[in-house]
């Protein structure tokens, strides 16, 4: 199937983009990597009037490191994340996750900001944004605003991003010495979107977690931060009985939605399994 007709232009600067926002309003769509957007165009599921290509905006396409933050430009490609030493060293969870993202040719093109803006509930990167409590930098004519990852994802493919805004960067706090990460996902085939997954980030002192984020993805309309489960675990030695309690609490806390291939029972089962696996891994 071929897309509906649309117009196309390249944004030469952020302020040029803001002009275009003003001109086209909700008829405008931003084209970054295009790996999800062009699919929806090719299926005629989306019909923008104007597609604005932001690939020339070099100011938002690099990874930079400051004292306590790794800032990833929105246009950084998945392949660059995969190959970045800064990410490997300072944002280990993201490094674990990125290995599961799609396939080589998609990773060469797909962008970090694009994946977050698209907000597929089964995607890896949004889950990491939540688990790492990253800060999203959103820009518009009015200036920049920062929003916590945990406040960003609203509903299925729906985020806090306004019509006249663009994600320009994602700021990840640098991992501390005692930071622990785990990433698990279940896919039928390599590179598929997850049936269910877990992104875990925390601080471990001895055998006790001092802080913990548990994000389950592929199980609901957005990635889900399991706060109550995490509260249960933090400050307690990780024992089999704690793990069991956490698994039971998980069933209470998150509301799982089934999909075409997997029932909610299946997704909940996998989530509990990954929780157990990840916590057991920390025990060792």
């Amino acid at each position: 199937m071929k897309p509906y007709d649309f117009s196309y232009t390249r944004a030469t600067s952020l302020s040029h983009l803001y002009d275009l926002f003003d001109e086209y309003g909700d008829g405008l769509k931003i084209l970054a990597g295009g790996q999800s957007l062009i699919t929806t165009l090719n299926m005629r599921l989306s019909s923008p009037e104007m597609l604005v290509d932001i690939n020339d905006l070099s100011e938002i396409s690099s990874i930079s490191l400051t004292d306590n933050i790794v800032s990833v430009g929105a246009l950084v490609r998945h392949a660059e994340i995969q190959e970045s030493n800064d990410i490997k060293q300072h944002v280990p969870l993201l490094k674990l996750a990125i290995e599961h993202v799609a396939h080589a040719a998609i990773r060469n093109r797909g962008t970090h900001g694009g994946s977050i803006a698209f907000a597929d509930p089964a995607a890896e990167i949004p889950a990491c944004v939540l688990a790492l409590n990253a800060t999203l930098v959103l820009a518009s004519r009015e200036g920049e605003r920062r929003i916590a990852g945990s406040d960003f994802f609203k509903d299925l493919y729906d985020t806090e991003l306004r019509e006249n805004e663009i994600i320009v960067a994602i700021e990840y706090p640098i991992a501390k010495k005692n930071t622990v990460s785990a990433f698990r996902e279940f896919t039928r085939r390599k590179g598929d979107f997850a049936t269910a997954g877990l992104a875990l980030n925390g601080e471990l002192d001895g055998k006790v977690l001092q802080s913990l984020s548990l994000v389950f993805f592929g199980v609901a309309n957005t990635p889900v931060l399991a706060r109550q489960v995490a509260d249960l675990i933090v400050g307690e030695p990780i024992t089999p009985s704690l793990i069991e309690k956490a698994q039971n609490e998980l069933a209470n806390e998150i509301e799982v939605i089934g999909d075409l291939y997997s029932s909610e029972e299946m997704k909940l089962h996998l989530s509990k399994h990954f929780l157990k696996q990840a916590l057991e891994e920390l025990q060792v």
């Binding site: 196309y8 295009g34 790996q35 062009i38 090719n42 690939n55 080589a104 040719a105 060469n108 093109r109």
Partner: peptide
Amino acid sequence: GACVVKLDGKIVRSCLTLAVQ
């Protein structure tokens, strides 16, 4: 993956890239 080509030296899906890009 049948439509893979190289864009600026890297493989991409040419069905998910617009000619104008």
